[in-house]
Design a protein around this nucleic acid. Structure first.
Lengths: 89, 89
DNA sequence: AGTATCCATAGATATTCATCTATATATTAA
DNA sequence: TTAATATATAGATGAATATCTATGGATACT
């Protein structure tokens, strides 16, 4: 849970997730959307992977990144729960 | 939006929000739940305030912190939207 | 087999950030 | 007005992190 929030704290990583929402992509595909180096992109993907927000699959030379849908949905629920409160004045 | 995610990235700040869900509290009240110094607590509260997640009201000597409910609910919605995706395989 | 491409990893650097101590500011109490 | 309490702020320090260059390991192409 902590790793998830930390993963989401970086705008570039949120952008990556946004892109993966639309379609699965290789690192090379993703690279076109960012100015930093491939090493940095790889680092961000690693953070997302450690947070279990994305999964990978090798397809020939390429490694395809996609959302980990179950965790993504779990997160949606737990975040929603998190923002629910029940304060009595 | 970025400041909100950054604010949520720290577990201590999420704990503060959890506590404020139950009731409004002064810094002194909150202090009992944490081991770090008052200065550190003040810093975390500042981050939450800059993210607009909490609001303050002076009550005598005390400064009472409470959730900024509208932003909190906004956040719930936008986060939920964030986690909704529509990927076609 | 050799080369090119794709991605990850190692190591360095700079920035951000969580925390501390010390102090300033505001309010209350004596 | 002086002392005590509540909170914020300034400045320092160490840890975490985002980024870079350089390189390694894997697969594909010729």
């Amino acid at each position: 849970m902590d790793t998830v929030f930390k993963a989401l704290a970086d705008p570039n990583r949120r952008r990556i997730l946004d892109l993966l929402k639309k379609k699965d992509m290789s690192v090379t595909d993703l690279q076109e959307y960012f100015d930093f180096t491939q090493a940095s992109l790889s680092h961000h993907l690693d953070v997302l992977k450690r947070a279990d927000l994305v999964v990978t699959e090798r397809r020939g030379q390429f490694i395809i990144y996609s959302l980990n849908i179950s965790v993504f949905e779990e997160m949606a629920n737990s975040v929603l729960n998190y923002f629910k409160y029940d304060k009595r004045k």
